[in-house]
């Protein structure tokens, strides 16, 4: 019944480093200036949570590259989750979301936290009612989607649009690829470890996203507590497999791993070097498992760390377009 074409949304222009593949955008949810702006407001607005205290940004904060700095995120009822919040960086290129890949798009992903009892613990019905009753949102939905019929589908479309703009492509690594600067000696040695079979990080973290977005058991535990992918698939062979996280902006995303068990990158590197545990589902790409890992010297460890630091993009955490619009 909507014949109101009062507004024509403005296409949102993305300016992405050419080393990145084309950003896939769903046909039924094109990026528009109005949609992205609405998504940003909803992302920062506690209106979606059960007791109106929490927003997406409570656990996905810009200063932490849209992750949080706690081991486990705290939900609205002070309920502690069992997983470390994931950063939202270049997520538009993924087609599997969450540590166990239980969502297939950013739209589908955004449906989950609102009703999740250990997160925002609300209901979509209540959230939509509140949005409809607000002074600002009906007009914004109209502008973004030519729709005054606000639904959860439109809410997640807007949030997903904002999510797709959270692009980090301006680290030192990117600048070197664009030939705007060059690596130091230590960084270059680290890169050689990372991208060869010596430290062999690249078979899982090697592409431009620094995540193959696939699921691997990287050998954290002989007997994993959290079954990871197995929760979703029910296959025993998927025990302890988790989505490979990006390595971009690691300085901002501590603690590390699905359960935030490591608080520093030194601990992470020690783990890959000596702490890997064998188990029936460990990934075949993990090397020298029988010796506990790839066995790096102290110098190699610091070189590898120097390389990982080149993935830091401070323009990402300072970008005014990603900030809380209510502040």
């Amino acid at each position: 019944m909507n014949t109101n074409l009062k507004y024509i949304p403005t296409p949102y222009e993305l300016n992405i480093s050419e080393k990145f593949p084309e950003l896939p955008i769903p046909e039924d949810n094109p990026l528009t200036v109005e949609g992205v702006e609405l998504g940003r407001m909803l992302f920062y607005d506690p209106i979606l949570s059960g007791d109106s205290t929490q927003s997406c940004s409570s656990c996905h904060t810009q200063e932490f590259a849209f992750s949080d700095n706690r081991r486990f995120s705290v939900g609205v009822d002070n309920k502690l989750g069992n997983r470390n919040s994931m950063p939202i960086i270049n997520s538009g290129w993924y087609n599997k979301f969450f540590w166990d890949g239980r969502a297939n798009s950013l739209e589908e992903q955004a449906l989950d936290p609102v009703k999740n009892p250990i997160e925002m613990h609300g209901s979509w019905e209540v959230a939509i009612k509140r949005i409809k009753a607000s002074d600002i949102y009906p007009e914004l939905f109209d502008r973004a989607f030519n729709q005054t019929q606000i639904s959860k589908e439109l809410v997640v479309k807007a949030i997903a649009q904002f999510g797709r703009t959270l692009i980090s492509d301006n680290s030192k690594y990117d600048k070197v690829l664009r030939k705007e600067t060059s690596f130091s000696e230590a960084e270059l040695r680290g890169l050689n470890l990372f991208f060869t079979e010596k430290a062999d990080c690249f078979h899982c973290h090697g592409n431009i996203l620094f995540s193959d977005a696939a699921f691997h058991n990287s050998g954290l535990d002989e007997f994993p507590n959290d079954y990871g992918l197995e929760h979703r698939t029910k296959y025993r062979r998927d025990r302890g497999k988790f989505k490979t996280p990006t390595l971009r902006n690691l300085v901002f995303t501590a603690p590390y791993m699905h359960d935030g068990r490591f608080s520093t990158l030194e601990e992470v590197i020690d783990f890959y070097s000596e702490g890997v545990k064998d188990s029936p589902t460990i990934d075949p790409l993990m090397k020298y498992v029988e010796r506990g890992g790839v066995q790096l010297s102290e110098k190699e460890k610091s070189d590898l760390l120097a390389f990982l630091m080149t993935l830091t993009d401070s323009t990402f955490i300072d970008n005014p377009a990603f900030r809380n619009p209510f502040e």
């Binding site: 080393k19 593949p21 050689n192 991208f195 060869t196």
Partner: peptide
């Protein structure tokens, strides 16, 4: 330049 091809890169210097 697709993600699939990107994942197959052979980055040896």
């Amino acid at each position: 330049n697709t993600l699939q091809n990107n994942n197959m890169e052979w980055p040896i210097i």
